[in-house]
Design a protein around this nucleic acid. Structure first.
Lengths: 330, 330
DNA sequence: CTGAAAGCGCTTACAG
DNA sequence: CTGAAAGCGCTTACAG
């Protein structure tokens, strides 16, 4: 069927060992022999069997990203796709491959354990990291290469994270710049690292910039966000700026307040497609960059190189939800 | 390091051949021996090396979906993600794996040729099929398993396609049901199979249902769609219903007409997330089902089973953009 | 610089 | 029903 290294060797009148050396850029092949072999390889467009190579080398050049299903929703947000795009940008540019899988039910540790034993992949990129994550425990024990997207309290691993602290700080700074004096921050639930980091950024901006900020907990829930606004409205709404820990909460707030003809600058977080559509100012986490860096890092790790954790900077996207207030304040 | 079949054989006092037979559910192993071996396999949670198995069996259990970059935009629409989700639903349920890759520049046929020679995957699912597609020519020549999403004129392959004809028919039927008498159909560009199929459905509904329909070509372009409406408006707008070959065109039309205070029922195609948001009635292609069926089909093909092409039915999603007109007509 | 040989971890036809 | 052996297509330590 297709050509094997043995066929090339025969045609070139050399041993398979020599062909293999040429294939792998070994220096101990004479230029003459090398050229002779190269010519034949090119003529027949010979490509080695990667499975056979993998078996010998104990490396496949394949990595994996596993999506765990949370409430049936998997791979249906732009976060996943942008992240994948970043990961693929790296791997495809290097001729490496990525296995994408979803793991629905059953033991997560068992799933990863089987993946390791099957020897198909050289490393993992972990999403949705939790506190005391069983995957981390397993992979550390097995000394198997992986990098984590995000952080938890332990950080006994290499991670690539978004700079949530700086992102939240930027949002508050922007509201301050458009002259907001009293800001409402609607946070995500505590216990989630992302929420805690964003709150830290808000507190830090409050201290540095001297703005008044009240914090409420919307828990990334749209209804809860509206409830918070309703109960504030009962006492009279005194805020001249709102920052929400997610675009979905920000949009819920925007819609609710618009219904009551209350106009107030508002900033969200995540830069989901809807936000561009409705003109919501927000923080973009540069998810593509995060994916790219994660891929690069796990690849280096699998190849035994030194690797370090990274924090990827976010970007403020200014849109109508805040920009339209600039003139009013002047 | 990790256990090999030889280790299990030694512990069970049998040959590796026998262990292999147990692993592969061979019937020619005595129940006694089988139980003895199973116990040891379970005790040590032994899993065979899939790379070694693949080398022997000439099958890896890995399939591939390659996204080709078109204008930098890849994997950033909901089509790709829903499709992937469907594909993964099948593969993950069967313990099979999926390689996702992007191919940016360079020779497409060469990319596929190298993938085949590297022996890593058992089959492909092809997206964005074109007329006289070079991938089809290559894969047919190599007799390599693959299935195509969509159709072209040749159809010298197994495909999974959306029923665009029936989808378009349903849209017109719905407009007719809400008493539209004169409908404007804004089509995609000819030469694209999807456009031609949807136009066929429109024409067929026109004939069957006896509605008056004019066709214009918006070419899936939002600006062009608005231009069409503008030039129609000059002569006076006489339509009481609009159907567009995509949600993006439908949304552009909706926004433009609303700006002029013209209210007319409108139906789009694709059911993108924005459509739910703005209440646009549309046709949902059931992309998840398409992905699932494609995965199943290529898997069957790689295993030498009979396979057939499929047309997956679409669904009408009724929303405010048409429903709000029901009372007006009564 | 080059080759013969062992071996990566499996499966399977062959023989008994 | 079971085992010894060949072989999948490579790589690499060893010897020369």
């Amino acid at each position: 069927m297709s050509l094997k290294i043995k066929d090339i060797a025969k045609m070139a009148n050399v041993s398979v060992a020599t062909v293999s050396r040429v294939l792998n850029d070994s220096d101990k092949v004479s230029l003459e022999t090398k050229n002779k072999i190269m010519k034949i390889i090119q003529k027949y467009d010979y490509k080695p069997d990667r499975i056979a190579t993998s078996l010998r080398r104990k490396k496949t050049g394949i990595y994996a990203v596993i999506f765990s299903v949370k409430g049936g929703k998997v791979l249906e947000d732009t976060y996943s796709t942008k992240f994948l795009k970043g990961v693929l940008n790296y791997f495809s540019s290097k001729g490496l491959k990525l296995i994408v899988d979803i793991h629905e039910n059953g033991n997560v540790a068992e799933y990863y354990s089987n993946m390791i034993k099957s020897k198909v992949v050289d490393g993992f990129i972990l999403l949705d990291i939790r506190k005391n994550d069983e995957r981390v425990n397993l992979l550390n024990k097995e000394k198997f290469p992986y990098v984590v997207i995000g952080r938890n309290d332990e950080n006994n691993f290499v991670y690539i994270d978004s700079d949530n602290v700086a992102g939240a700080y930027m949002a508050i700074k922007h509201l301050k710049q458009i002259k907001c004096k009293k800001i409402l921050y609607i946070s995500g639930d505590m216990g989630i690292p992302v929420s805690e980091q964003r709150l830290t950024g808000v507190k830090s901006a409050q201290k540095d910039l001297g703005v008044e900020i009240d914090v409420e907990f919307g828990d990334f829930d749209e209804e809860k966000t509206v409830e918070i606004l309703k109960s504030i409205l009962k006492k009279g709404f005194e805020y001249d700026g709102i920052f929400c820990a997610s675009d979905t909460m920000a949009y819920a707030a925007m819609k609710f307040l618009k219904g009551l003809n209350i106009e107030v600058p508002i900033v969200g977080y995540d830069n989901i497609p809807l936000s561009e559509f409705v003109g919501l100012s927000t923080i973009d986490q540069n998810i593509i960059k995060i994916g790219y860096s994660a891929a690069q890092t796990v690849d280096n790790m699998a190849k035994g190189k030194e690797t370090i954790s990274m924090v990827v900077p976010s970007k403020l996207i200014k849109r109508q939800s805040t920009l339209s207030f600039i003139q009013k304040h002047i």
